[in-house]
Every structure is written in structure tokens, then in C-alpha cells.
């Protein structure tokens, strides 16, 4: 069956974003909007949480907001 999703929430996709620049949880959620991935809100939250725990990115505060980032 054809999928309408044009974005996939994968560890590799998250890694690429976090190497490019530090992002908040909200920034990441914006990259993987449910209407683009076809996932539910709950699935998105659960999968993204698992991926972030596995990637264990560095953290820093920018403008009082926690940002995640990775270095290559």
C-alpha cells in the first residue's frame, strides 16, 4: 500500500539534525510532524524519546532552553 508519509522518524534522521545544530524537543517535534510521518502523537513522543535516550546527545542551555546536539 502506498504511504502518504514523506518524512521518517528514524535514529539516523534525528542524528543528522542534531549534528547540524542544537535543537530543543520542540524543534525536533516540528521536524517530525505527525501529518508528515503518519505516526500518532503518542507514537512520535515514544519513538523520539527512545531515539534520544539511545543517541545520548550533549545538552546545553541556549536562551534558557535545553538544547540537544551531537558532534561527529
Amino acid at each position: 500500500t502506498p504511504s502518504s508519509s514523506d518524512v521518517q522518524l528514524t535514529e539516523e534522521a534525528v542524528r543528522r539534525y542534531l549534528i547540524r545544530k542544537p535543537m530543543t524537543t520542540k524543534d525536533l517535534l516540528k521536524k517530525f510532524q505527525t501529518k508528515r510521518t503518519g505516526l500518532s502523537s503518542e507514537q512520535t513522543v515514544n519513538v523520539l524519546a527512545q531515539i534520544l535516550k539511545r543517541l545520548n546527545p550533549e545538552r546545553k542551555n541556549i536562551n534558557d532552553k535545553m538544547h540537544f546536539y551531537l558532534t561527529e
Binding site: K26, K30, S41, V45, A49, N56
Partner: peptide
């Protein structure tokens, strides 16, 4: 909507509580 985004961000941060 932005309120849904806020809710999702809050849920994600709760999931990551120990980690963050």
C-alpha cells in the same frame, strides 16, 4: 496546532525526565 505541539513537547520531556 501549537497547543498540540506544546503538549507533545511536555510529554516528550516527561519521558526524558531522568535523562534531562
Amino acid at each position: 496546532s501549537s497547543s498540540e505541539a506544546d503538549e507533545m513537547a511536555a510529554a516528550l520531556e516527561a519521558e526524558l525526565h531522568d535523562f534531562m
